[in-house]
Nucleic acid binder design. Structure first.
Lengths: 356, 356
DNA sequence: CTGAAAGCGCTTACAG
DNA sequence: CTGAAAGCGCTTACAG
């Protein structure tokens, strides 16, 4: 008796529709009808098939069915994040999952780690498994490698950063406006020597936030001091060191704009180490957990991460439902939330409104 | 001319091996050999096939190949987390991803949200897509629904909480020992009225941590006061309220053991609201971000989340590689990291060592 | 209402 | 070294 020979009608491998058909004495097609809730099967046969399926604990093979099915859908999407473990990425993941779950769609997630090779490899791995769509926080500056896939009809939505050399939907934050508001807030509290500490200028969000900083200074007729602009900061440790150096300048800044959450954390540590956290103002872009428990609380510019994730998923599913209108770009506002650190007064005159 | 008719040899649908074969003038089987780097194909044919594949931008369909392939592997695993957005879950996800990536395996991740129906549904969704293995942080108290799948040969590893009514590998934290050490630490600093604030007793980790609290009190001959034991706390808000109430007792606790990170956060807020954060000692189980920036810093019992994730993934892949030894249970120590809040002295005599 | 045949995109098991 | 036939587990397109 071979390994696959049935024992008491129970096969010795994972049961298939063939096994259910054999046990219930109907054709394969009838089993398929019952499993897929197609109408027009007699109650008697439905009962026999269900009973056999239960006895065998039959679980339909979705990958086989989507291979043959005319729509070809796998009920699977792929999510390329910066790093699944960082709070921005995981909040995005969560928001997308909730929308996907309602549609019976399951999510592949992976980290790109700001590495364009990983981005390509991960996208290829998802495509090889025939995901129905992709949601991408891109790392590289060339998404043309996705052009064929897009022509093949796979919808894709970019989040946080727009695609480059590829026409596709995107859900973004108004980084420049948010940053301009943050710096204007500092100016209105009497600051003119304001430092800007940011990530690599090659990352579009970092570039836009720097532009917002510059715009606010320009509007207030404040000269830009290159000593106060520190870019290319890649970790909270690097940010801590950068702020330490800033504080030791002959004419140090009275306020700091930290253009990303890891940088904000480094800035907080540096200010505390120098015991300047009650003297030097700080506004950070992006959320940082538990800052309301710090003294002073930290003033932050918050992105609507959950809204962006939900919007990206809804846009993706709209495309999957057949919407082939022109490429969309949804921009979400970032909102300044005073916490204490951004309201520390500077040595220059303060203004009533943030509209300095 | 039909939609699928080739135009200049380029098909108007996603290219398949058939298309590559037609364009390069070889058989389907030869294309398969080249794509899979099988040996024994003449250099001439390899070149022709590669060239055709590139012209068409051919991307092999991994789901089709795994359907036919004798090992049936999809190079995909499923990860059931409590909530992809919480730091414990996402750190676990990250550690698992790193191991999986080295093996060309891609990860489905989903949130179970402490809901056993979601747990079953999500596991079924992964199984329907024929994942090679499952890593599960279970919510429910009956994993027998996975028994057939396990008999079908799908390896599965449980993390943080052991499986119930199912024999399977597990990677766990020594919750009781870690909690006992935490409470002993408080006792050694002069505390005897120590509150324990914890999650639902039905969650195994919460039950073990309560047991550790009880064990430490028993060993020190301290009577257990039911007023000081608050279980079933499900959010940081509930924890804040519970601690607020504890502080208003006629004979309030001088120290608090918070058995989970959300609870620790609630406890911090309640102590600050009552201005008792420099008087009442606090030790929390699980990591809480940025607590080193608080005043006082918070003493925590830390789990080795990254180690646990890596161990779970490695165990899973070992099983996938054919290891069918007996079920394993790996226990990771939790380690107490003093931060300040746990070293606030209580009114009773202090002891030299934690070995009170 | 039911089922036999063909085929989704690939690999297996052979034959030459 | 190369390829024609069969089949993975399903659905499609028919026929009865």
């Amino acid at each position: 008796m071979s390994h696959d020979e049935p024992v008491n009608g129970v096969p010795r491998h994972r049961p298939t529709m063939r096994d259910v058909a054999a046990l219930s004495g109907v054709s394969l097609k009838t089993v398929s009808r019952v499993v897929n809730f197609e109408s027009g099967v007699s109650p008697d046969l439905i009962a026999r098939v269900r009973s056999a399926a239960q006895i065998l604990d039959f679980q339909p093979n979705l990958t086989a069915s989507s291979l043959r099915r005319s729509d070809g859908k796998t009920k699977t999407i792929g999510l390329l994040l910066e790093n699944v473990a960082n709070p921005f990425s995981s909040a995005l993941h969560r928001a997308i999952e909730i929308v996907a779950r309602d549609r019976g769609v399951v999510v592949f997630a992976g980290s790109v780690d700001e590495d364009q090779t990983r981005e390509r490899d991960l996208a290829a791995a998802f495509v090889a498994r025939r995901v129905d769509g992709l949601i991408v926080v891109p790392a590289g500056h060339d998404q043309s490698y996705l052009a064929t896939e897009r022509r093949n009809g796979t919808p894709m939505v970019f989040v946080d950063r727009p695609p480059t050399l590829l026409d596709a939907d995107a859900v973004l934050t108004a980084n420049q406006v948010g940053s301009r508001d943050a710096v204007r807030h500092l100016i209105s509290h009497g600051h003119r020597r304001i430092a800007c500490v940011g990530d690599l200028a090659s990352i579009s969000t970092a570039a836009e936030r720097l532009a917002g900083y510059v715009e606010a200074l320009d509007r207030a007729d404040i000269a830009k001091d290159p000593d106060l602009i520190r870019q290319g900061i890649r970790s909270s440790e690097a940010a801590q060191e950068a702020v330490r150096e800033l504080l030791q300048l002959p004419d140090p800044p009275t306020a700091i704009f930290a253009s990303q959450n890891l940088i904000t954390i480094g800035a907080i540590r540096a200010l505390r180490a120098a015991s300047r956290h009650h003297q030097v103002a700080l506004v950070g872009f992006d959320d940082v957990p538990l800052v309301d428990l710090l003294d002073p609380g930290i003033t932050l510019v918050l992105q609507d991460v959950v809204g962006m994730g939900a919007a990206a998923a809804e846009l993706l599913f709209r495309r999957l439902d057949g919407d082939d209108g022109p490429t969309e770009r949804r921009i979400f506002d970032a909102r300044l939330v005073p916490g204490g650190s951004g309201e520390i007064a500077g040595p220059w005159p303060t203004t009533n409104a943030d509209r300095a």
